[in-house]
Amino acid sequence: MRRRAAALAVPFSAVLLAVTSCGAIPEDWRTPAFMRSDEPELDERLPTVTGEVGEEPNVEFPDIAPPGEQLSGVVHRGGDGEGALVRSDDMIVADIVDYQWTGEGEAEKTNSTYETGTPVLLELAQMNEDLTASLADQPLGSRVVFVFPAQDPAEAASMGQPSPAPGDSVSVLDIRERFGRGDIVDGEQTTDGGEDGLPTAPDAGHDRPAISIPEDTDPPSDLESVQLIEGDGPEVEAEQQLVVQYTGVTWNDGEVFDSTWDRGGAPATFPIGAGQVIEGWDEGLVGQKVGSRVMLVIPEDLAYGDAAAESGSPEGTLVFVVDILGAVDAPPAPEEGASPSPEAG
């Protein structure tokens, strides 16, 4: 049900794209000085990061040349608590502040989600282990600093990318929230649906819901939305990135054609209200509250249309049960004339 989101215009995500696409960090980026989360001391070449997590950090750069190696370290470990530890295959919501480290004690801030008010959503399962090592097993509220060496100009040119800026890039990442396998919305399901000839979907807990289509009943001609659990979070806005669990069945036979639970219960993420999913999702989920479980009955014209079979998509009226786990604002568009984020093939 989702399409890949656009690249994020921050150095951390540029590195993420590179290692996801190419499968490995270049050997000359690896270093024994890479500081893993269980080591008590930070590499002395890392910038000094202070301030409260949840506010933009203060970053001081040492009077040394940029190290030209990948380094990282946990500069603040958040509070402990059940369910609060980040797992290696989680999605996390994080604030990121980026710098370009150009010389001894010299750096320029290039990006701050604290300034834009748009934290980023990162899928750790899509990242190389060398990047996730300092994020996995950290509690929410932790702060991690990364140093990335500049890409080789010749390599960038060979891949059709802009020439990289001189010096190392530095990213300070604050972990705000996590979503993981088996997550569902909180709250008691107050109805199973079923009114006015609509399907039913009893609460299945941490498992795929069983959606039952009423017998000898024609599907509704209009989009129907039934709130099975009413969330208490903010309303979903168009162009946000949603994090959801979902199951979809076809009205004509009640068969499941897609479900996050069939992929190990790993939540899905996609932009909503931006024309990147079927119309019934855009119309039915924008305005719902985060924390809600919603049943959507989507007529054919708001699903895959009468040409669904030609594209291998499910035909006719579709029924979904969706848990809205989170909604994250999209980052602002790059300024006119700004260089695009590099991507790797």
Score class of each variant (00 low, 15 high):
216 D>A: 15
218 D>Q: 15
219 P>E: 12
221 S>E: 15
221 S>N: 07
224 E>V: 11
224 E>C: 08
225 S>P: 00
227 Q>H: 02
228 L>T: 09
228 L>F: 03
229 I>M: 01
230 E>K: 06
230 E>H: 00
231 G>S: 03
233 G>I: 06
235 E>Q: 11
236 V>E: 01
236 V>F: 00
237 E>L: 08
237 E>T: 08
240 Q>R: 05
241 Q>P: 00
243 V>R: 03
244 V>N: 03
247 T>P: 04
250 T>L: 06
250 T>R: 15
251 W>I: 09
252 N>M: 07
252 N>E: 14
253 D>S: 06
255 E>L: 13
256 V>G: 00
258 D>G: 13
258 D>P: 02
260 T>P: 08
260 T>Y: 09
260 T>N: 12
261 W>T: 10
263 R>Q: 15
264 G>V: 11
264 G>Q: 14
265 G>N: 13
266 A>Y: 09
267 P>S: 09
269 T>L: 14
269 T>A: 15
271 P>D: 15
271 P>G: 14
272 I>W: 11
273 G>E: 09
274 A>H: 08
276 Q>W: 05
276 Q>I: 09
277 V>E: 12
277 V>H: 09
277 V>F: 03
277 V>S: 10
278 I>W: 04
279 E>H: 02
279 E>R: 14
281 W>L: 15
281 W>Y: 15
282 D>K: 06
283 E>Y: 02
283 E>Q: 14
285 L>K: 01
286 V>F: 08
288 Q>T: 05
288 Q>A: 10
288 Q>C: 08
289 K>T: 11
289 K>S: 12
290 V>S: 04
290 V>A: 01
290 V>W: 01
290 V>F: 04
292 S>R: 10
292 S>L: 00
294 V>Q: 10
295 M>R: 05
296 L>E: 12
298 I>N: 07
299 P>F: 09
299 P>T: 05
299 P>M: 13
302 L>I: 01
305 G>D: 09
305 G>A: 05
307 A>D: 14
308 A>R: 12
309 A>N: 04
311 S>V: 09
312 G>M: 06
313 S>Y: 05
315 E>Y: 04
318 L>T: 07
319 V>N: 08
322 V>D: 11
322 V>M: 10
323 D>N: 15
324 I>T: 06
325 L>S: 14
326 G>C: 10
326 G>K: 01
327 A>C: 10
327 A>R: 07
328 V>R: 08
329 D>Q: 15
